[in-house]
Structure formats: C-alpha cells, structure tokens
Design a binder for these strands. Sequence first.
DNA 1: CTGAAAGCGCTTACAG
DNA 2: CTGAAAGCGCTTACAG
Lengths: 332, 332
Amino acid sequence: MAQERKKYTIDDIARELGVSKTTVSRALSGKGRIGKDTVERVRAFVEEHEYRPNRVAQGLARSKTYNLGLVIPGEYSGMPFFRDCIDGICQEAYRYNYDILFVVTREDGRAQLQRLVDNHKVDGIILTRTVMNSGHVEFLKKSRMPFVVIGPSDDPEVTSIDNPNREASRELTDFLLMKGLRRLALVGGNASHYVNRSRKRGFNDAHQEKGFHPDPALLFMEVEDYRKAVRVADQIMLAECDGIVCMDEMVCALILSCLREKGIAVPARMKLASMYDGSQLESNLPPVTSIRFDTKGLGRNACMEILGMLGEELRDDLFPMNYQVILRESTQ
Amino acid sequence: MAQERKKYTIDDIARELGVSKTTVSRALSGKGRIGKDTVERVRAFVEEHEYRPNRVAQGLARSKTYNLGLVIPGEYSGMPFFRDCIDGICQEAYRYNYDILFVVTREDGRAQLQRLVDNHKVDGIILTRTVMNSGHVEFLKKSRMPFVVIGPSDDPEVTSIDNPNREASRELTDFLLMKGLRRLALVGGNASHYVNRSRKRGFNDAHQEKGFHPDPALLFMEVEDYRKAVRVADQIMLAECDGIVCMDEMVCALILSCLREKGIAVPARMKLASMYDGSQLESNLPPVTSIRFDTKGLGRNACMEILGMLGEELRDDLFPMNYQVILRESTQ
DNA sequence: CTGAAAGCGCTTACAG
DNA sequence: CTGAAAGCGCTTACAG
C-alpha cells in the first residue's frame, strides 16, 4: 500500500515551496499577517504529504510539553470510578491535542510524581482522589506546577472538582429514611479517603434534617475484603439494623454476598443501597438501588479546568455535575 | 519551607562553574573523556541546586521522546488484567526514565493512535489485547513505529508477549476432567478477542489429549451481562453439564450469581472454575478455583521488550511467564 | 581533557 | 506580507 513516507520538517517545506520557514510556521499557526495564496500553497503541501508538526519541538520552542500528568492510586485503579474518569479526561485532552502521562502511585508514591515534574515532562497535573496527607498537594504547590484535584479539598488555594458526593449520599439516605427505616448501617472502605468522609457527611446530613441521630455503633469502615465483610454483616444483624447504605459498589458487592450466604433476604429482611453505580450493582442479586454519577463528565471537567489554567481557549462550558438515584429491587 | 527555586539550565551551570556547556553535558552523561574533578564539581552543583536535565530538550537533541504509548481498549480497561498489566509496564518504564502515554481506544480507535504517531510523541508503542482486525498492527507496521503486542499474534513479524493462556486453560480443564467430569461447559465473553480464542484452544487440547471431544453445544460466548448469563445458566442446566469453565472472572461472577439465584449448589451440583484470578473469585461464594497469572510480570516483560527494541541497555532478564492453579471450594 | 559550533524542529520578536 | 536571526535546552562530531 502507501509507501512509508519521509518525515517532512518545516525546513523541507520551506525549501520545496521556496519560502522561509518563518512563513511556513506562520501559515500553519495562522498567526501574523500572511498572504492568502501562500497559506493555500502551504496547506496544499501539508495535505498532500501529510505533514504534521513535531509537537515536541513545538513544545520546546514554546516552553510547553502538551502533556498532562494523571496521578492514579494504584490500589484502586481498577474501580469503575477511575475508568470512567480517565475516559473523560483523555477524551477532552485529545481534543486539544494534549496527551496524558500516566502515573500510578504506590508506596513509592511521591517519587514518580517528582520524576514527572523534575523531568519537565508535563504542563500540568490532575490528581485523583488523594488520600489525606499524601503530600502530593503540598509538593505540587511548592514546585509551582499547575494542578487540579479530582475529589474534595478544603484548601481554598486548590482547584478541586468532584462528584456531589455529600448531596447524593444525603439524598440516598433520605430516601431510606422516608421509607420508614430507622436503624441504618453505613458501611465503607478506607476511612482515610476524602470521598468516604463526604459520603459519611451526607449520611449524617439526612439524619439531622429529620432530627434523627445516626448511631455511631452502626458505622463500619475498612471493609476491604471478604473476611472483614462477614464480620461486619454479623454485627449489622446483631444490631438489628433495617437498612444498609454502602459507600461504594465494591463494599456493597461484598456485603450483599455475605447476606445471601447467611440467608438474609434482601430486600425482605434488609434494605440495601449503595453509592456509585458500577455494573456490579445492576447485575447483582438482587439488583441494588444506587447513585449514578456522571463521572466521565467529571473527568472532562477536570481536564478543562487544567487546560484553562494553562491558557488554552476552552471550547465548551463545564458540564453540570449531577447525579441520579437509580431505584432497584434491593429497596423495594 | 524551601523557597521555590529557579529552574537551572545547562547554560547556567556552565556559566556558574566557568566551563563550557559541552563539558557539563559530558559530566552529566558520563560520555567521553572528562576530568575527574570537573565531574565532581558538576555533580556537587547539581546536587546542591537539584538540577534535572530537561528531558524534552534532551529528547529533541537525540531525536527521542522518552515516552511509550500504551493502547488500552476502553471497554475493558477496568478489568484486573489491565490494571495489573499497566502496573508492571509503568514500573519498568520508570526505571528507565521513560513515561507512559495513555491511549484509550474507543469507536474512534485509530484516530488517537494516529495522533500519537503523527505528533512524534512516542518512541514506541505497547498494544494490549488487540481485537482481531482492529487494524492497529497494520497501521503501526506501515508507520515504522516500533511496537510490541501484549496478547497472541500469529504474525511472525510482530513481537508479541502473552500469558500462557492456552497452556493454563488446558491445565485447568484437565484438572476437571481428572476429577471425572465429562460434560464441561465453556463460557466466555467476546469471541473476537484473541485471548478467548487461546483459552478455548486450551480447553479443546485437554479434551483431545484424553481422547474426548468437547461438545460444541456446550460453548457459550458473548456472555457480557446479567440477562445473557441467566439464559446461558439455564441452557447449561438443561444440557446436564457437570462442570463449567469460565474464560474470565467477570463472566464467572455473573454465572455464579445466576447459579446461586437458581439454587444450584456449587460445588455439590455443579463444579466451577475460571481463568484469570481476579479478587472477585477469591471472595465469592463459594470461592472459585482459578488460574493465577503473573500479569504484572507480563507488563514488565512487554515494557522491557520495547525498551530493548529502542536500544536501551536492559538491566534484567525477562521474567519467566508462569501461572498457578489456585484450588478453592468451587471444585471440591 | 575541553570548547566552539552546528544541530534537533519548531517559534517569535525584529526589521524591512 | 515576508525573512534572517536568535532562541527553547540539550547533544555530539570535530578540532585542539
């Protein structure tokens, strides 16, 4: 098929067209006054030879990289939230001809982030769901690298963007309270995640609005594996709860499977609802009532924010950040 | 704390030290003859001012980018396989001071890959689990971009690296046959994925070795959601199977949940085993016998391959690609 | 052992 | 409207 072609540079074009490379550059960027037919000739040449400017060289000249760093916590990278988020981020980045540099943080956490900054490989950074006190935010502030955080932040100097976790959690809880449930358990994973704090707050909000007091004994955190889930499920039954709110779909899948194992009928004997609507919830037995966020939109927004900070002319408004309560059998 | 510091360039260092930038460059790279104490002085300066060479400029001068493109199919990016794989790839790339540029392919598939190549943003590319006829391989061949494929390939010109899916599938199936099972169902997702073809082959291998013939009526593909799984579970029971081999942990979780729903006891009435040991299998009810691969090692190997192709001096040997059968309750 | 110079592929004042 | 020149931050023959 198509013969693999020579990689043209701006110099080649200039020579072939008998103009200076300044002119070619301008014809391509559209900046500065330039003859209409000159532009046309360049355009035609570019078209025919499929010339694409070397973005790296372009970057060097403009002191840019056209790369965005995306920091993802390794332990949770498989969660639907991150998948959706990444999706949105990439989609938006590509529109502006930026690329996403991936950083999976682990124990060595800071090291990789630092490498990225030290090597001047990115123009800005998107931090996702930082663990409290991870130090990433402080590091980035000090290094003067523009960044945004996906997740809550109480630091006014930090641009943060997030799903409305607290509100959604409040609404989901409120829905259960309206059904007459009075002893709701709240079950979650890692308590040191900001997101879980927000969801807990929403849970409390709903209670307080109605003049109720959530029982602190019904809060169960750090449910991250099967064994822990079994113990928690036992405690929930002992405590005579009538409903369970799960902070995410992983926890929910674990708890539900424990309930089934113990022969506790959902929703007959126990109502169940969960934050974040991953596919595990819809296809579970029974399907679980949950909150659906537009996480992809969240990712796009985060990307737009940082692009804006980098001086890109944004082509769209931010998406409004909404959520829906998806009613399913588990709360009937 | 630490005052944010000026970004030094190699020129700054040269000036401050009263040498030429050639010398500084050489002191840093260690190439060419150079005075021992000159090196020491440079090193000290670098240390004190935390100078790091601008990798992008370095790249331009050497016609490199120090980026690797990683192509992930969007629909499946949340699967444990990709998580583990990415993990290994990133880890290895960082060791060589390369970064990973993320490309999530969707319907627009080729476009993003092309953008990466056209913009000269990467030195090489890692393709993961290509769908048959995705065209990525052909495109990369034509563009002369070095690449490796994670997943099987029958093209001798393509460097491919993969988990031993066929062998592992054979062994898992063999294990069930050895237990005396004779009507095994094979259940999987997308039939157009190479990986599923390999696993099917292994399933057949095991049968043929023993002189058996797998019943084509017991092959169920395209099981991707709950509804489909329910129907398949019905058919499996109607067909009087005595065991099920699942091609991946997603499918397995779906099928198992259907069996529970129908009150079919595993392992008493039906044995169940699965390829790929994701966390869903261990913490399921009952825990499911499965194959564990060293997918992280696979990722590292793939990364080492491509780095080798790019002329990097590899510091380790490739990992041996193994797997283990993890016996759990579902086949007892 | 060290340096001046050209180059990687682009951009952008400055001058005409 | 167009071009020569300097520059982005590095590397690398070439000469000494």
